[in-house]
Write a protein that binds this DNA or RNA. Structure first.
Lengths: 335, 335
DNA sequence: ACTAAATAGTAAACCTGTTTGCTAATAACG
DNA sequence: CGTTATTAGCAAACAGGTTTACTATTTAGT
């Protein structure tokens, strides 16, 4: 079927030239008679003509594509971020290309290259700590970059994040006051993601201020549930009030399962504090207290900053720190 | 900085012609001396040259972009589908562009147009019932299309789905045998999505076979929780065993909350059967029985079929019906 | 040794829009 | 009325690759 129509055919049908049609399509209609405009509009309408993006972006006018690289899109937090980005991007007529890095440098590199290939106008990245080298590559090609959630260098880049450190510090302090004596922290490798480091440091600093110590376990996503269960069981010094802080949302369910036989001790003897707005923590018994990040807003902000940079406006304030809130629930006593 | 290099410069540096470099880039190296190959490889390596996708796809060679249009990316089911598609696509060097339709025709249309603009090589779509008109538009442009989850016309299109009807029918029948007398069904509008219709029909057919009747409530995503709570409360004829079937994953938490004051009656007096693999149903108390679709596999299959069609291979069998399983849990008695 | 076939490589046309530089035609001005 | 300024519009060059059609050089075959 589709003899795919080109701007040339439109021009012929509208009895004008390619140039004029092109101007029309790009809104440069100031030097154009109403009659011509109408003729072109009519033909475009009738033929349902849509210009080829490929040909357009050949002239390096930009592709209206944004590259989004995020650690794990299957978790709710990342999901909401992307939704926030997408909603704003769509409003501004940009389209997302999303990549899942699993926080692995090789994947980040692969996506950066691919997205540069495709001619994205800019990047929003939740970077692993190794992303550093890729920043240069992106800058070499004059593409804009906004970090989200985590960051690599505070210096020159644009970013949006949440106050992980302060939020954990404050929440921990208020829990310490409730009389917990024994502390356990579980986290994924803090050297991989700056937010992880902020969270673990926040917790440890709170303990330090209160002269408490803590047992820490660093795990990765492949950790066996058994291993966590064994660890938790070993570390629970029953009799002394224990607070368990789980720094990553995907880790929380595993810890929760490990606590299966101790649920009746929650929250009096065992306190549990997690991260992020997970649907199930509202339905579990007991429900779980979590520190909640404004993920959707984070995404919106990042998109606004990026698009602003791409279009050379200077309206958005870069580098925003958004505040977390705490969803106090049954797994911790309330002050 | 970046004097962006073109194939011409590479050719000059490698002391050869554009043509030869182009052939090299596309793997047409059969008629090429090893020496030439090495020279080109070296220059590309040194300069970190990457050809412009825009220029490439101008020659209508395809963009290696796949358009994915899905109802609601924030639910786990859709998420797993997209992950399945993405994993396979990445393996085959395709890139996804994902759009959220919210099951609304206008959004579907917008995304189809935009993705056609961008020159995607094909579509994977979870279509609303109104998608019909867009099928033609896609076919007019000779793009491939694979429906996933839902479908519009059984006739000519390719699709991958799960056996919603049979799964619901069987699960319901086995529950009816346990002695439930009173039946409640909640669903989103079945006329919008074919899977919804299959599920509701499956449930009603099971009841019909057993000579039972059912109270049905059709809601949309904006329904107030209060409304559901009131409905549930009104319909629960305590004393007679009641089975509640919730046909949509996003609806289940709202119903669950509505049952707050009746949880001790579960599962003896009240049975609850939901849909999809939701993390929280494993942590709630009681845990919830759900019919689980093999979402990730569905995505993989769809991607395999689509890519197969794009590349004109005929290796994949189109039109697969994957089997659901049931995650029997505490919200229903077990046979 | 001489033709036919295979090999290695290239110049030029092409894909579809955008942008530049120029030309008529009309309007404004003195 | 003649000259300049403005308006409306177009031909041609261009963007960065791919593909076609053709040439020159070897190799193979008899």
């Amino acid at each position: 079927m589709s003899e795919k129509l080109t701007i040339k055919e439109i021009a012929i049908k509208a009895n004008t030239s390619k140039t004029t049609v092109s101007f029309y399509l790009n809104g440069k209609t100031d030097k154009m008679s109403n009659d011509t405009k109408k003729r072109i509009a009519k033909v475009i309408e009738e033929t349902n003509y849509r210009p080829s993006m490929a040909a357009r972006s050949l002239n390096s006018k930009g592709t209206r594509l944004l590259g989004v690289i995020i650690g794990d899109i299957t978790n709710t937090f990342a999901n909401q971020i992307v939704k926030g980005i997408d909603d704003l991007a769509r409003e501004k007529r940009y389209q997302l290309i999303v990549g899942n890095s699993n926080y692995i440098y090789e994947n980040e590199e692969k996506y950066v290259n691919r997205m540069l290939n495709m001619g994205v106008d800019g990047f929003i990245v939740q970077p692993s700590s190794h992303f550093h080298d890729l920043v240069e590559r992106i800058k070499e090609e004059d593409k804009e970059l906004v970090f989200i959630d985590s960051q690599v260098s505070m210096n020159k880049e644009k970013w949006v994040k949440t106050n992980n450190y302060e939020a954990v510090l404050e929440a921990s302090e208020s829990l310490i006051k409730l009389g917990y004596e024994n502390f356990i922290m579980l986290s994924a490798d803090p050297s991989v993601l700056s937010t992880r480091l902020e969270r673990t440091t926040g917790f440890l600093d709170a303990l330090k201020l209160a002269n408490k110590t803590c047992t820490t376990k660093i795990v990765d996503e492949n950790v066996a549930s058994d291993e966590i269960t064994t660890f938790i069981t070993d570390e629970l010094k029953l009799g002394s009030k224990t607070l368990i802080f789980v720094a990553n949302c995907w880790l929380l369910p595993r810890v929760y399962v490990a606590l299966k036989n101790y649920r009746n001790l929650i929250p009096e003897t065992i306190g549990l504090l997690g991260f992020d707005n997970l649907e199930w923590t509202n339905f579990s018994s007991p429900t779980v207290s979590t520190i909640v990040q404004p993920a959707y807003e984070e995404g919106e902000q990042a998109a606004a900053i990026l698009i602003d940079a791409i279009e050379n406006l200077n309206e958005q304030v870069p580098n925003q720190i958004l505040k977390c809130s705490v969803n106090w629930s049954e797994s911790t006593q309330i002050k």
